[in-house]
Each structure stands twice: as structure tokens, then as C-alpha cells.
Design a protein around this nucleic acid. Structure first.
Lengths: 342, 342
DNA sequence: GTGAAAGCGCTAACAG
DNA sequence: CTGTTAGCGCTTTCAC
């Protein structure tokens, strides 16, 4: 490098070469100081540090990682929608674990698009993230097999992968729903309206299966009052509730497959001044404020995110450890408040 | 590189050199194919592509960016708490913009810790993110001045920076609150209890100032009914409400500085079967389900995130463009439902 | 203790 | 149209 190429432009970020020249030492000494290597003569180290702050030097970690072959200290989190509190809570919990390992999280939303999911995985792999946490959509993650075989830590959350083997952290959808429906049965309800979202979704299938188990235990035909809705408008759930209530044998209780459905049901029941028993999967922040009692299946979303992140770092340390499949337990909790008329 | 160093280990990711050797072409031809350069003889391109999928090649974008001096296609988002829907909505909106530019978001939470905020900024700069979106905490962001001068696009959201100049996207806290308090005044309320969170917070100071403006317009001493709370437990807000109601001249209306305070107030009023008029800053998803009418100040959080991200990319294109200071407008909306007794 | 040389995986520049 | 050479900013040898 000639002297005139010494980088006179103010815009360029100073490199270790610039620092070395300013401090009158070799590039390598600068590198040592930057990395806190103790065996550097203190006067040299001081000169280097002075030059660093003089020039406003900041190490380029991208370059450092490239040469050292070390990790990028980044893990990728692919979820369905970051605006959804369920996923943002997971992201926050995973980030808290990552922080302990000086690692940052790249969070991306697939928006329920399997093609996008795959693109994101590829993109993150090309960025050489150290690991991947994925809430899958669609039913084919076989494209990840090669990555996993190559040693990329991959953890699936909320739903298991299809077409490849990986660590998973799931919620106990089936047991949670079974316990909830058992409770309704114990209260004497025999006609229980079950409202689910699309059964393309693993979690929804599991919840329905849990409900069916409880109903069958009680000798009740599990499909007796069953409505599927596909829309994300709460209104649709309200319509389902209305249709069942208007039938010749209306249910005396409803199980709502998620909190969105519950909200639609609450609104419809409020409109009708109807006090049919309500139960649902998913607890949520404002459930205590619901204007009528509701029993919901709760679970610790933060635990889900935390376990997933911990699995990634665990697998980073011991790449060939046995596949881990965690299940986050559920519990029943009574929400909603008794309120006055306005 | 000698032949025996050809990388026999199965674990190592294949590089362009490996692909070139397998395809019997030069490294550069592989690079061209990987980058979609059209001027490659089709039979060579086919051989390269075959070798690529044979070896499971994935370009290392970290290395590619290093050499080309291009961007890392990453922007950093520093917020206070990703688990908070306000911030996760911003993150989702910013990510949606970033997606249009094939850019990923690294999202990190400072947790209201100024030291952590600074560490995160430094870390993200060392990772050579292309830009930064920051919801600041603390009152000194002067450490960013050098970065901004060097051309790092930085956009502050929710609160402006102190000690440096940068683009901002803020919410019109002052106007929103002033309009809301004006409405209470127009309804005839003269005794309005104002409950805020810590005034260390820029947004809270602005909201209080907006309330004061409206009260002074009406010739009312603005500090008449005023309580500050510092805790994040809604209970504390309830205590403040209770104390004011128990005073010799209880307010006939309350303004709550944020939605957390509102929830505490709602609970306390429900407990007392008290129907004092309620108003608050912040709309939120479940506000329509509140068990009593409440007028809230709403704003489009997604717009905030979108504008911030767009500013980053705008400044990336034209680094020396004039400083932009956007203000997201607010509006009043009536929430809460009239409900039956249970 | 310090520094020169080589090279991480890729692209830019220039030849052929 | 293809290949060679150099080099991004840093770390890793391995001499001195």
C-alpha cells in the first residue's frame, strides 16, 4: 500500500492498519490490544489505545469473525408474526438468554408463508447465524435437513418440523385442552360447543384432539357441537357461537380454540345477554378484564422462548448431543371479572 | 493450496473454491454464477450449479460483504422491551419495510438501562449494521455523535436524543393529551385528576404539558389534582385514584398518562363501584373490552415503526439529506363496553 | 514481547 | 466470455 493511499477521506472507518500507523506499531500489536491480550508492553498498549480513541476506531467484528472462523454471535428467530404478543414474548425471552452469551437475535416474520419461511432460513444461513429458532408454518421443513446435518443448531417451537429431525419446544396443547374440557364436564355440561381455527395448524389439531379425548371419556360424541372457522376476524367466531345457540339443542358451554375466537364469543354473548359458560385456550394479558368469567388454559410463553434459546446454545457447545423435545406444561386459570352495569 | 488440503472433512461448509474444483472451472466463474451474472456460457453455468447442489454450497454473505464493502443488509433496532406490544408492533412494522430492501432486523432491548443502550449501540456498530433505530432511555446519546458524523443512519423513536442530532419519529403526545383534556372540560368537568408515571420520561413530560395547556386555557390551576406514580404495578395507580377520590374535593374525571395506569384505575373504580369519568393516553388491543367507557388517545404505532425504517433507508441512499423530524398524529377514540352484571 | 507473512471466503479489477 | 491477481479487515501461524 503506497503512502498516498493511506486513506485521507474522513468518511472511511479507520482500520487496524490506520491505528498501527498512527501509533507507530505493527498491525498485530493493535490486534493484540483490541483483543485484550495481556502480553503487550504497557507503553505500546497505551499508544495504541490513544490512537484508537483519537481515530475513533471500532473493530470490524465481521472481518474478525471471518478470519477466526468463530461464530457470528447471532442467532436467527423465525416466527409467524412479531406483532403477535405470543411471538414477541418468545422473542424477548430468547433475546434475554442470548444476551448472556453476548449474542444478538435476528428476528424475522414469515407471515404464515412457507415459501417466505424457507427463504428466511436460507438467508440466515448465508449470514452464517450460529443457530436457528423456528416457529414453522407449512408442512415441509425437509430443506433444513442438510443444514442440521452440517451442524447448524435448529430448534422448532410451537409446532414440530416435518421432514427433518430437530429439537423441539412445544406447548402441551392436548393435555391442557383435555383438562379444561374435563372441568366443563365435571361442572355438569354435556353439550359443549367446540370452536377451532383452521385444522391445518398443528396446535389447533392437538387442542381438538384433547377436547375429543375428554368428551370420549365421558361417552359423548366428540363431533356433536363443532364449528371450524378460518377467518381472523373475531366476527366469524361470533357467528359460529350464534349459529350453535340458535340450533335446536344449544350448547351450555363453549370451548374456544384460541383467544381470538374467545373474543368473538365474548362479544356475541354480550350482545345476546347470554351467560353460557365460556372456556378457551390461551391466557392473555387482559383476560382478567374480560367482562364475564372465563376459564382459560395458560402456559408460560417466556419459558418456551427461554428453553428454545438455551437449546441452541447447548447444541452449539455439544453439537452431537441427543435430540431434545421439551413440552411446556399448561394449567387452568379463571379469568374475567364480575362487573357492574354501566 | 495443495491438493491434500482440499478439505476432506465432511463438516466444513463448501466454499467457492470447492465448487470450482468440483466443476472444473475457476473460482471467478463460480462467483459469477452465484451472483447471477448472465454472461456465463450455459454449459459451464450448468456444471457449476450441479456442483453447487451436489456439495450443498451456500454462499457466505459475510465474506461477500466484507470484500465488496457493501452493506451487511442488517439494521439494528434498540428498544426498551420487546415484550411490550408497543415496541413489538414497531419492530414488526420496521421489519416489514426492511423486507422490501432484503434487510434483516437485529432487535435488542435495553431494558431502560442507559449503559446497556450504549453497549448495544457499540456492539451493533461493530457488527457494521447499515443503520440504527433507537428508542432512547437515559438522557445522553452524545456517544452517537461520532457515528452519525461518520454517516451511520440513526433514527430516534418515541423520544428525541440528547447530546446529538438525528432524525426523529415521535408521537404527538402534547396535542393528544391537550385534545383529550379539552374534551373532558367541554363535558363540564372542572376537577380532573391527572395521574402520570415518572417524569424522567420524555413522553410523560409531554403528556403532562399537554394536560396543563388545556387546563390553563380553561383557567384551572393545572397542578390541582395531580399524582405521580413510579411503580409498574397497576396497584399503585389504583392507590392514587383512591387517594384522590377520598380527598375533600374528589375529581369528577381522571386522565391516566398511559394504559398501565388506566388499568389500575379501572380496577380501583370497579372495586368501589365508582363511575367517575375515565380518559387515558394509549389505545390498546383490548381497550374495547374494558368494562366501562373510556376515552383514549390513539395513534398508529405501525406508522411510527414504518417511518423510522423508511428514514433509515432514505438516509442510506442520500447520507447528507436534511434532518427529518416526523410527528405521528393522535386522535381520540371512545373505548370500553357497556356490559351486563354477571 | 513483537512483527512479517499468509489466508478466512469472497469480489473487484484487469487481463486474456 | 473466462481466468488471474490482488485485497476487504482482521486473526493466525511462526519466525525473530
Amino acid at each position: 500500500m503506497t503512502d498516498q493511499a493511506a486513506g485521507r477521506d474522513r468518511d472511511r472507518r479507520p482500520t487496524m492498519v490506520d491505528v498501527a500507523r498512527a501509533a507507530g506499531v505493527s498491525l498485530k500489536t493493535v490486534s493484540r490490544v483490541a483483543n485484550g491480550v495481556p502480553t503487550v508492553r504497557s507503553d505500546l498498549a497505551d499508544r495504541v489505545r490513544a490512537a484508537m480513541s483519537e481515530l475513533g476506531f471500532q473493530r470490524n467484528n465481521v472481518a474478525a469473525n471471518l478470519r477466526s472462523g468463530r461464530n457470528t454471535a447471532t442467532i436467527g428467530l423465525i416466527i409467524l408474526d412479531l406483532a403477535n404478543p405470543f411471538y414477541s414474548t418468545i422473542a424477548a425471552a430468547a433475546a434475554a438468554v442470548a444476551e448472556r452469551f453476548d449474542t444478538q437475535l435476528i428476528t424475522a416474520s414469515s407471515g404464515w408463508d412457507p415459501v417466505r419461511e424457507r427463504e428466511l432460513v436460507l438467508d440466515l444461513c448465508e449470514r452464517r447465524v450460529d443457530g436457528l429458532i423456528i416457529a414453522p408454518t407449512g408442512d415441509d421443513q425437509s430443506y433444513l435437513g442438510a443444514e442440521i446435518a452440517r451442524g447448524m443448531p435448529a430448534v422448532f417451537i410451537d409446532s414440530p418440523p416435518s421432514g427433518c429431525l430437530a429439537d423441539t419446544v412445544l406447548i402441551d396443547n392436548r393435555t391442557g385442552t383435555r383438562d379444561l374440557v374435563r372441568r366443563l364436564l365435571a361442572e355438569g355440561h354435556r353439550d359443549i360447543g367446540v370452536i377451532t381455527d383452521s385444522l391445518n395448524d398443528f396446535t389447533m389439531r392437538e387442542r381438538l384432539a384433547g377436547a375429543a379425548e375428554a368428551l370420549e371419556e365421558a361417552g359423548i360424541e366428540s363431533g356433536r357441537h363443532f364449528r371450524r372457522i378460518y377467518s381472523d376476524r373475531p366476527h366469524t367466531a361470533g357467528d359460529a357461537v350464534g349459529a350453535m345457540l340458535d340450533s335446536s339443542e344449544p350448547p351450555t358451554a363453549f370451548f374456544c380454540g384460541n383467544n381470538r375466537i374467545l373474543l368473538g364469543a365474548v362479544e356475541e354473548l354480550a350482545r345476546r345477554h347470554d351467560r353460557t359458560r365460556l372456556a378457551a385456550f390461551d391466557d392473555f394479558e387482559f383476560a382478567p378484564l374480560l367482562p364475564r368469567p372465563v376459564t382459560v388454559v395458560g402456559y408460560d410463553t417466556r419459558t418456551l422462548g427461554r428453553l428454545a434459546a438455551e437449546l441452541v446454545f447447548q447444541r452449539l457447545r455439544r453439537p452431537r448431543s441427543a435430540q431434545a423435545n421439551y413440552v411446556v406444561p399448561t394449567y387452568l386459570v379463571d379469568r374475567g371479572m364480575a362487573v357492574d352495569p354501566v
